[in-house]
Design a protein around this nucleic acid. Structure first.
Length: 689
DNA sequence: GGACTCCCTG
DNA sequence: CAGGGAGTCC
C-alpha cells in the first residue's frame, strides 16, 4: 500500500468482492464454485483491475463505470460520446500516420482544457465525470496509437515504395480528416455540457480547440504548461488541493510524451524496422505508463477527498469521523484512507443507484427449531398419524413431491409453478469517482462513531441463530453480503471470506469492513413516515411473525420515527398480510376438501406448489429472499387447520376461524437480527453486491 | 378507554 | 393497501 498503484489495486480488489455484477447468474457457464459467484478472473485480472480494459488490444470499450443510475441525465450523452469517439478512432484505422503526433499534442492540450474547467468546477460529481472523460480520451488515444502501429507494420512495404511524398499527401489528408473529426467531437462535447446543466463556463469549451486532433506539434508550449501545472500542484498542497492538481500532477502522459518525442519519433524518422521496433517499445511503455498513470489519478483524487473532507463537513458533531478512532494501526483502517474510501465509494454508488433493486442475501433461519412447542401437529378431527407430523419436517430440497398439495393438483399446472428464477442482477456500477463521493461523505457525517452505537444496535452485530446459508451460497441469490455476515456471524463470514480472500490474493478487507460498518450504522435522523422499503421489510418479516407487537415493530424499524399513525399503519399492514394469508389458506383448504385430499402429504406446501408461489409472490415479490422453512411449516399448519375445520363442518360457525388464528399466532418465531438494520433490505449495502 | 384484531369495502 | 366499523381484551 505504499505506491499509489498498489493502493489503487487494493481498493479495486476490494471493490471487486462487492460489486453487484459478481453474480454467477450474469455469467452463464461459469461454475459458481470456481469463482465464488463472481466473474472469471479474465474479467478483471489482478494488477490493474480497473484499467484492464484500457489495455486490451481492441480497446475493449467495456465501460467500467458505464452503468450510471437512471437519474443521471448525462448517461446517454456520455455513452454516445464515447461510442462516437471510438468510431472516430476506428475511422482513422489505416489512415493515421505521423501526423497523429500533433494529435497527441492535442490530447494533451485537450486535457488541459478539461483541467481548466475542473479548477472552476467544484462540483465533486462532475469532477468525477470529468476524470472519466479524461481517461476516456486517453484510452482513445492509446487505441489509436496501437492501431497506428499495426497499420504501420502492415503497410510498411508499400510505404517503402511510395516514399516520403506519398506520406506527405497522406498526412495532409489526415489533417483534414482530423479537423473534421475535431469538429464532430466538439459538437458532441457541447451536447454533453449542455446536459450537464449548462452551468459550465464558456471557458470549459477550451477543450475543443485543443482537442486531440488539433494543434499539431508545439511541444515547447506543452512543456511550459506542464511546468506551470506542476507549480500549481505544489501550491495546491499548501492551500488546499485543486482538482487540476490531482489530474495534472498525475502526469498521465508525461512519460509517454517523452516516448513520443524520443523513441517513437526517432523510429518513424529512421528505417521501417526501427519504426516498428520503436512502435512496439512505445506501445509497451504506453501500457505501463497508462496503468500507473491512471492509478496515480485515482490516488490523487481519493487523497484529495480525504483531505478535503477534513475541513468541509457542514456541521459535524464533534465526535464524528469516518472511521472509529480505535481501529488500531492497520494502514487500511486509517481514517479516510483512500482504499477505504474507494471501497466505500463504490458501495455508496451502488447503494444510490440501485435503490429500487431487489435485495440480495437475507438470511434463512438457521438452527431453526423444527417443531414449535405449541405447534398443533395433529388435529383430532383429522385421521392423520399422531405427532411428530412428518410433513412438518419436509425435506427442503424436494424438487417435486407428487404428493405435495397442489392447489390445482388435478391439473398439470400443479407443478408448473416453480419459484421464478431470481431476477438478473442489476448492472454493475463500478466507477470510483462520481457524485457518490458526496453521497458518501454527507452520509458518513450523519453516522455516529461506532463506539457511540446504542447497545441495541451493537447487539445486532452479533451472531444470529436464525441466519443460515443456502446449500450453495456462491450460486444462491440469498447469499448475504460479506459485511453482513461478518457482523452477524463471524464463523459464517469466515467461509465466504476465505473464498474472497483467495480470489483477492489474500488481501485483508478490514478497510472495507470498516466502511461497511460505517454504512450499517443507524441513521441519526429517523424517518417520519413509512416507505415502500419499510413495506417490503414488513412483508419479509411476515415470514417470521404474523402477529408482531408494536414494540417488536419499533425494534425492527429503528429508522422510523414512531407515532400513533405510523404504528397503526404498520399494524394495519400486518393485519392485511394476515388477511391475505388466511384467505389463501382457506381457499386452498377448501379446494383440498373438494378434491378429497386427505392424506397428510397432500396437505403440504412444497416450494413447487401454487400456494407457495402465491404467497411468495405476495410477500417476497422480487423473490430474492428465500422463504424460510419455518414459514412453510406454519402455512402447512394453517392449511391443515382450515382443512380440518372445513371438512368437519365447523366452518358453519361464524367464529370458526378464531381457533385457527389462535393457533397461528402462537407460531411466531423471532425475526432475524438482520431486519433490525436500518435501511434493510433496500439499502444495497446489505445486498450481495 | 386504549390497543388490537377481524371484517368489509373501495 | 387503506379506511372504518365492530368486537374483544386488559
Amino acid at each position: 500500500m505504499d505506491s499509489p498503484t498498489d493502493l489503487f489495486d487494493d481498493a479495486a480488489s476490494q471493490l471487486h468482492a462487492f460489486t453487484p455484477s459478481l453474480c454467477t447468474s450474469e455469467l452463464p457457464g461459469v461454475p459458481p464454485q470456481s469463482n465464488g459467484g463472481r466473474p472469471p478472473a479474465t474479467f478483471r485480472p489482478p494488477g490493474y483491475p480497473l484499467i484492464h480494459h484500457l489495455l486490451q488490444p481492441g480497446g475493449a470499450p467495456r465501460r467500467i463505470g458505464g452503468q450510471l443510475n437512471a437519474h443521471n441525465t448525462n448517461l446517454g450523452a456520455q455513452r454516445h460520446l464515447e461510442s462516437r469517439i471510438m468510431e472516430e478512432v476506428e475511422e482513422r484505422d489505416g489512415q493515421v500516420d505521423q501526423g497523429m503526433e500533433g494529435g497527441e499534442e492535442g490530447v494533451m492540450e485537450g486535457e488541459e482544457g478539461l483541467l481548466g474547467v475542473k479548477k472552476r468546477h467544484s462540483n465533486v460529481a462532475l469532477m468525477a465525470e470529468w476524470s472519466r472523460d479524461v481517461l476516456r480520451v486517453k484510452r482513445m488515444k492509446l487505441e489509436s496509437m496501437v492501431v497506428r502501429r499495426d497499420v504501420e507494420t502492415a503497410e510498411g512495404d508499400r510505404r517503402r515504395e511510395r516514399g516520403r511524398e506519398g506520406r506527405r499527401r497522406e498526412r495532409e489528408e489526415l489533417k483534414e480528416q482530423l479537423e473534421e473529426a475535431r469538429e464532430r467531437l466538439q459538437a458532441l462535447q457541447e451536447k454533453v455540457w449542455r446536459l450537464d446543466g449548462g452551468e459550465m463556463e464558456k471557458e470549459s469549451l477550451s477543450l475543443l480547440p485543443n482537442s486531440p486532433f488539433s494543434n499539431f506539434g508545439n511541444h515547447k508550449r506543452r512543456e511550459e504548461r506542464q511546468k506551470e501545472q506542476e507549480g500549481r500542484l505544489e501550491r495546491g498542497k499548501g492551500g488546499g488541493l485543486h482538482i487540476e492538481g490531482l489530474m495534472e500532477g498525475a502526469g498521465v502522459w508525461m512519460g509517454c510524451g517523452g516516448l513520443v518525442r524520443g523513441e517513437w519519433d526517432g523510429g518513424m524518422e529512421g528505417g521501417d524496422e526501427e519504426a516498428e521496433e520503436g512502435g512496439q517499445k512505445f506501445a509497451q511503455a504506453l501500457k505501463l505508463e497508462l496503468g500507473s498513470a491512471v492509478a496515480r489519478v485515482i490516488d490523487r483524487v481519493l487523497r484529495f477527498y480525504t483531505e478535503t473532507t477534513d475541513f468541509t463537513p457542514p456541521s459535524p458533531p464533534p465526535s464524528i469521523s469516518f472511521l472509529p478512532s480505535d481501529t488500531g494501526n492497520d494502514g487500511g483502517r486509517e481514517r479516510g484512507h483512500p482504499a477505504d474510501l474507494a471501497a466505500a465509494l463504490a458501495l455508496r454508488r451502488s447503494h444510490d443507484k440501485r435503490k429500487a433493486n431487489p435485495l440480495l442475501g437475507p438470511p434463512l433461519p438457521a438452527h431453526l427449531p423444527h417443531s414449535h412447542p405449541n405447534l398443533p401437529l395433529h388435529h383430532p378431527s383429522l385421521s392423520r398419524p399422531p405427532p411428530p407430523h412428518p410433513s412438518l419436517l419436509p425435506p427442503p430440497s424436494q424438487p417435486k413431491d407428487p404428493a405435495s398439495f397442489h392447489p390445482s393438483s388435478s391439473s398439470s399446472s400443479s407443478s408448473s409453478f416453480p419459484p421464478p428464477p431470481p431476477p438478473p442482477p442489476p448492472p454493475l456500477p463500478l466507477p470510483l469517482l462520481h457524485y457518490s463521493m458526496q453521497q458518501l461523505f454527507s452520509r458518513s457525517l450523519h453516522h455516529p462513531q461506532l463506539p457511540h452505537l446504542p447497545p441495541s444496535h451493537k447487539d445486532y452485530l452479533n451472531a444470529d441463530p436464525f441466519l443460515e446459508f443456502p446449500p450453495h451460497p456462491s450460486s444462491h441469490p440469498s447469499f448475504p453480503p460479506l459485511p453482513l455476515l461478518g457482523h452477524l456471524d463471524p464463523s459464517l463470514a469466515h467461509h465466504a471470506h476465505s473464498d474472497r480472500e483467495r480470489e483477492r490474493g489474500m488481501r485483508g478487507d478490514s478497510g472495507i469492513r470498516e466502511c461497511l460498518c460505517l454504512l450499517n450504522q443507524p441513521r441519526v435522523y429517523s424517518q417520519e413516515g413509512l416507505s415502500p422499503c419499510h413495506l417490503k421489510k414488513a412483508k419479509l418479516m411476515f415470514f417470521y411473525t404474523r402477529y408482531p407487537s408494536s414494540n417488536t415493530l419499533k425494534t425492527y424499524f429503528p429508522d422510523v420515527k414512531f407515532n400513533r399513525c405510523v404504528t397503526s399503519q404498520l399494524i394495519k399492514w400486518f393485519s392485511n398480510f394476515r388477511e391475505f394469508f388466511y384467505i389463501q389458506m382457506e381457499r386452498f383448504a377448501r379446494q383440498a376438501v373438494r378434491e378429497a385430499l386427505t392424506r397428510d402429504n397432500q396437505l403440504r406446501m412444497g416450494r413447487d406448489t401454487e400456494l407457495y408461489r402465491i404467497l411468495n409472490m405476495h410477500y417476497n415479490k422480487s423473490n430474492v429472499y428465500q422463504v424460510p422453512e419455518r414459514f412453510i411449516e406454519v402455512a402447512e399448519v394453517a392449511l391443515r387447520e382450515f382443512y380440518s375445520a372445513i371438512q368437519t363442518g365447523r366452518d358453519s360457525d361464524p367464529c370458526w376461524k378464531k381457533g385457527i388464528y389462535k393457533i397461528i399466532c402462537k407460531l411466531d418465531s423471532p425475526v432475524p437480527d438482520a431486519f433490525r438494520l436500518p435501511g434493510w433490505p433496500c439499502d444495497s449495502t446489505y445486498r450481495r453486491t
